[in-house]
Amino acid sequence: MSALVGSFAAEWLKLRKRTSTWVLGGILVLLVLVLEYGFALLAITTVPKGTHLGGGVTLAGLREALYPAHFTQMTLSGFVSGVGSAIALILGVLLYGSEYTWSTLKTVFTQRPRRSQVLGGKLAALALTLLIYTLATFAATAILSSVTQAAYGGTSTWPGASDIARAVLVAWLISGLWATLGMVLSVLFRQSALAIGLGLVYAIAVETIIFNVLRGFSWMQNVERGFPGANAQALAQSFGSAVRGATEPAVLVGAGQAAAVVAAFLVAFIVLSALLLRRDVT
């Protein structure tokens, strides 16, 4: 067994047996269902017919968004919201942050693999966990959308397999972006608490609140193009809006460019982690 494969096997055992790994995944699935479907279903069942919900959204348009034809857009919306980024970021932080908290890094680094191989094993285990999160979330939204359509009548129309696969890959890439940001922060600060705190402040305060407030300024779009969260959002928006008639947000960048920027940040976070991991372990 090569050192890299052995490292992955060890990391996967640690992640798989850790309760918080699956609690985080469960929270992600639950929050995507509640925020993307729950509130919409509440609006459909409680708001009087014919009411316009603002932004060009009608109740009928909102109901159609909950059907299987749009489940990929709905799920992606959940992944680029604060929920998806926060969960992925926390998982990424736990990957190294806990090693610093428990001082287990010295146990890991005095076995066989090189530090880069340990990092490779961790990234592979992280990628597998995020893929499980992503598939579980898509599966849950697919089931709920199918149930919703069955409840309102009519036959289900599903997106093409390639569209579903592309959406899954995009969600996986976006969650990978936030997870690697969490990882690099935990390695930088050699702990979990500060990394989670600052990571969430960045993801929610900077990338969401500040950018939304300043979006009215033309120069802001140029600034946003260089930020990972804005590009992740642009990538998700390239699948179109799930809600018929809803006002589409301005296109920041094309899907290709957004994917490239997101991937570049992800790689940069990994490289930065690798460099920081060369520091002394005391």
């Binding site: 067994m1 090569s2 050192a3 052995g6 490292s7 096997a9 060890a10 055992l13 640690k14 047996k17 850790r18 309760t19 428990w102 001082s103 287990t104 010295k106 146990t107 890991v108 005095t110 076995q111 066989r112 693999p113 340990v118």
Partner: peptide, 29 residues
């Protein structure tokens, strides 16, 4: 080829003793 214990032994508190050794065994192949 080295077995070492530097300062106090550190392992994963949520894993059993056996699983902690499984982690070590996997790292070492």
């Amino acid at each position: 080829r080295i077995g070492c214990m530097v300062e106090e032994p550190t392992f994963y508190p949520y894993l059993s003793g056996r699983d902690n050794l499984r982690v070590v065994a996997r790292y070492c192949g």
